[in-house]
Computed example of a mutant assay.
Amino acid sequence: MKFPLRSQVGHLIVFIVAFIAFTNAEASVDTVTTYSASMKKEIKALVITPDSYDESKDYPVVYLLHGFSGNYKDWFTKVPSIESYANRYELIIVTPDGNFGSWYWDSPVNPQSKYETYVAEELVDFIDQQYSTIASRSGRAITGLSMGGHGALYLAFRHQDRFGAAGSMSGGVDIGPFPENWQMKDYLGAKAEFPERWKSYSVMGQLHLLSQNNLALIVSCGTGDFFYPVNLKLHEELTYNNIPHTFMTGPGGHTWNYWADAVQYHLLYFHNYFQSN
């Protein structure tokens, strides 16, 4: 049966309008205040839920960590397309505050800096209580940039009961070569005084916790990045130890342009992980 041309055009217009409305649908962005019992203070985070969010469904969650000197708003303000990825993959994105330069450790020097406990335990519990999530490791992933790339892998390696997938973008995955940088000695003490501590508080010092196929891993770093040598070393160590992972590299420096591009691949990687589980 053939429709009159006017009817066909009308159907086409309705389809186009519906398509535009769907593709332009905005995710919901909440600023939440969480309480850290371990640090006895309130900490903010952004929670991005897809436009399709429905409390009768459970959604996977990606925790996205900022870098040194950043804050919980960085990913949202510097990469506005983050909202569209929450819609596209129907997942929740959480961007917590990791303080100016905590490196996401429970500091052995500063008892007021327990960001490992905060992100991996307190924040995860809060999100699972307040939102409709897949409250298991199969529904959680974590990644970040620079200091946050280190933090994401460090936390995931040490909390494999919490996270099933993890990534790093331009991560400071081996802190050893940088003993005077980014105020790390304020949280660990001087490297010359505590060399073993500096080893164990680095991503490279946590590789012994990994086993085959227990964590889905993706690591990205541009060849022009000052962290490229340590990321290449991580890739080589993971390969030597037969730990499956995706290693992505190419032209790029320690810049938001690189991270805005890289995060697309990380979120697609996590989406595929969630779908397979």
Rank of each mutant, 00 (worst) to 15 (best):
Leu5Asn: 02
Gly10Cys: 07
Ile13Arg: 07
Ala21Arg: 13
Phe22Gln: 08
Glu26Cys: 08
Ala27Arg: 05
Asp30Leu: 14
Thr33Met: 10
Tyr35Ile: 04
Tyr35Leu: 10
Lys41Leu: 10
Ile43Lys: 00
Ala45Trp: 04
Val47Ile: 15
Thr49Arg: 14
Tyr53Ser: 07
Tyr53Cys: 10
Tyr53Ile: 07
Glu55Thr: 12
Ser56Thr: 12
Lys57His: 14
Leu64Cys: 12
Phe68Pro: 03
Gly70Phe: 04
Trp75Pro: 06
Ser81Met: 09
Tyr85Arg: 06
Tyr89Lys: 08
Leu91Asn: 08
Ile92Ser: 08
Asn99Met: 05
Trp103His: 06
Trp105Cys: 03
Asp106Pro: 04
Pro108Cys: 09
Tyr115His: 06
Tyr115Asn: 00
Thr117Pro: 01
Val119Asn: 00
Ile127Pro: 09
Thr133Arg: 10
Ala141Arg: 04
Leu145Glu: 09
Ala152Leu: 07
Leu153His: 06
Tyr154Ala: 06
Phe157Leu: 13
Arg158Val: 03
His159Phe: 03
Gly164Cys: 02
Ala166Phe: 02
Gly167Lys: 08
Gly167Asn: 07
Gly171His: 06
Gly171Met: 04
Gly172Glu: 02
Glu180Tyr: 10
Asn181Ser: 09
Gln183Glu: 13
Met184Gln: 13
Leu188Lys: 01
Phe194Pro: 01
Pro195Phe: 01
Trp198Phe: 12
Ser202Arg: 01
Val203Thr: 13
Val203Asn: 07
Gly205Leu: 05
Leu209Lys: 15
Gln212Lys: 15
Asn213Val: 01
Asn214Ala: 02
Ala216His: 11
Val219Ala: 09
Cys221Met: 06
Phe226Leu: 13
Phe227Val: 03
Pro229Thr: 02
Lys233Gln: 15
Glu237Ser: 14
Pro244Lys: 10
Trp259His: 11
Ala260Thr: 11
Ala260Gly: 15
Asp261Cys: 09
Ala262Arg: 14
Gln264Ile: 11
Leu267Arg: 05
Phe270Asn: 07
His271Ser: 15
Ser276Gln: 14
